[in-house]
């Protein structure tokens, strides 16, 4: 069985009230300070800091949210309010390798359906699902700005363009072998 998820899932009915604040290494704290220093208003750093929390903790978990609220001097609900608006902020765990296949027009007419079919076939899941071992998720996403090099998918923060079905197989193997970055430590 696969776990269902959507990248911009609404929160569960009641957001859990975090009891503890996440903690980070001095290096990560220094990185956070660098982002905060860019803005005259701390709250502006909310997205950059969410990306850091997500990278360090896998997703925006309740202790991470509590940390952000504390660090930025806003309410926990302010953090959830923003987190649920942006598709790149994960409020639930996703697979280690998230295959985000672009489904918008140029990719669609240049072969996206075959790419998606191949990826799903290889992994035994449907778009929006995660493999039982938690290693892979597949999502269909909207335009990623690779229309001239379609079809494409993003894994972690890397673009894989001008894809063929054979390359999909190779990418999956490279993920399994730990040869691809997933954008997380």
């Amino acid at each position: 069985m696969s776990n269902q998820f959507t990248p911009n899932n609404p929160l569960p009915q009641e957001a859990p009230v975090p009891e503890e604040l996440a903690t980070f290494s001095p290096e990560v704290e220094a990185e956070i300070e660098r982002h905060l220093a860019k803005y005259p208003v701390k709250r502006s750093a909310i997205l950059p800091l969410m990306f850091i929390v997500q990278r360090e903790r896998g997703y925006l978990d309740p202790p991470g949210v509590a940390y952000l609220a504390d660090r930025l001097g806003v309410r926990v609900t302010d953090i959830w309010e923003v987190a649920t608006f942006y598709t790149m902020i994960n409020t639930q765990p996703v697979g280690k390798y998230h295959l985000q296949i672009c489904k918008t027009l140029s990719c669609k007419i240049m072969g996206e359906p075959q790419i998606t079919e191949r990826a799903c076939q290889q992994l035994g899941i449907q778009p929006g699902e995660t493999t039982p071992d938690g290693l892979f998720s597949v999502s269909l996403v909207e335009c990623l700005g690779s229309c001239g090099t379609a079809p494409m998918m993003q894994i972690g923060f890397d673009f894989h363009e001008n894809l063929t079905t054979q390359q999909v197989d190779e990418l999956i193997v490279r993920c399994r072998n730990g040869q691809l970055s997933n954008g997380v430590r």
Binding site: K38, S44, A45, L47, Y86, T87, M88, I89, E142
Partner: peptide
């Protein structure tokens, strides 16, 4: 500054709201 996956933030006032957190 990084956005986080929202087409609407290309609209300039939505972008400013996003930049304000």
């Amino acid at each position: 500054h990084s956005g986080a996956g929202a087409y609407i933030c290309g609209e300039e006032t939505a972008l400013l709201n996003s930049l304000e957190g």
